[in-house]
Design a protein around this nucleic acid. Structure first.
Lengths: 228, 228
DNA sequence: ATTTATTGTGACACTTTAATGACAATTATC
DNA sequence: GATAATTGTCATTAAAGTGTCACAATAAAT
């Protein structure tokens, strides 16, 4: 939950409406009236999702989307486009340049929220607060609890986030820097090897219930959460 | 329950009907025949919920809703709109400007009450006055009394609300700001850390009956009421 | 088998975060 | 209007969590 969502919309009323909806749904809206402003805001911090109006003054939404999807840094950020009802060609071109979903104006808040959740689930599963379970190991973001075969496992904040990240993207190797980016955030300056230490602490905690080897080392590459 | 509900409806018969219904359901109806009158009434005191007819003389319901949802002070007040049956576009536009739900005329009292309850619960789940019990700790909102194994526990107003909120949403972690929003109300400007102090006072009070560790700290995140 | 690259581990200094006690200000109560 | 209760803040203390490093262990390469 609680995603940072960048709204790029030139009409103040609609922008306001969107922001209102998002914050009511527990998100953190960041507002931009133009592509230029959006780019400026993204220099500070990358959002978790972008809601992009297709009809914008200056650089168009399509161009912006294409640009975002080309850049290595931003291509993973999901984009939901806002189109006027019936603009079928927009939808097609939008999906073509890499938008993840679209919502037609006028939109219902319910629908918008559903789509946001769906997109986040697809692109950034650890942003949603669905519980994850694997082999008797269960992590529940809302209660902030981890259990192994029903037995509570105590974890520190970092270990919790780390496990959450790994479990959200199982069967996939993550390099130390990827882990640092996603778990620590991209602002911090921390040694790569620090990840090792936290992996160790995590394994230690998981030993209580014999789940420690769900966390695997891939020599020369990184770590992986795997169900054997 | 017992919410103050503002009815904005120009047809006296329907207004009367609504008011009757609401007071029978234990609420406190406040009546306005027009948006202008409603605004006047809201200068004195903000209602907990607004039932708004979409077809009004003078300023239309839509405009009024939009205005309410723009104002920082009033944007949190839930709005239920009354629409004529089948006016699909009204519903869409209504939800678009931020109404929380709608009821079509002619409406059944049962349905209306259900929706009111749902909307109110969404805003403030701890507003319901069903007694809550957990592990011998019992909180009764109607009598405003807390007992631990039948023994009365004295609590200050804030501690009571805090416990009520936590018990209404057990097992879930609440950040300090969430707690502030829900227990103190979102208008106040209070330090996050103040929550700690009240948690402390609450725990101190619960110690009399050994219930203090139902309130758990989740480091780096917040607090949780839990029965484990 | 020896060398080399990589990961695991324990210890430790350091930071961050929460608990606690005291206090002044405000509000309710008699 | 005096007294008591309640509140929010702060300074202090206590506790928990974090990042680094040195060295041990392990796997891969020669």
């Amino acid at each position: 939950m609680a995603a940072n969502i960048l709204i790029v919309e030139d009409e103040p009323a609609i922008q306001e409406l969107l922001a209102l909806n998002l914050s009511q749904a527990g998100h953190n809206p960041i507002r931009a009236l133009s592509v230029e402003q959006a780019q400026m805001l993204m220099r500070d911090a990358l959002p978790d999702l972008i809601i992009l109006d297709w009809m914008l003054p200056g650089m168009s939404g399509i161009e912006f989307a294409r640009k975002l999807k080309t850049d290595e840094l931003t291509k993973v950020i999901p984009i939901i486009m806002l189109t006027a009802r019936g603009e079928e060609s927009d939808k097609i071109r939008g999906l073509e340049v890499g938008a993840d979903d679209y919502v037609t104006k006028p939109f219902s808040p319910r629908e918008l929220n559903a789509r946001i959740k769906a997109v986040l689930r697809r692109r950034a599963p650890q942003m949603t607060d669905d519980p994850i379970e694997s082999h008797g190991l269960r992590l529940d973001p809302t209660t902030h609890r981890v259990t192994g075969n029903k037995k509570t496992i105590e974890l520190g904040p970092t270990e919790f986030k780390l496990l959450h990240y790994l479990m959200s993207n199982p069967e996939r190797v993550h390099s130390r820097s990827q882990v640092l980016d996603r778990v620590w955030g991209d602002k911090v300056f921390v040694e790569d090897r620090t990840v090792d230490v936290h992996i160790r602490r995590l394994r230690l905690a998981l030993e209580q219930t014999g789940h420690e080897d769900l966390i695997q080392t891939v020599r020369g590459v990184g770590y992986r959460f795997s169900a054997q």
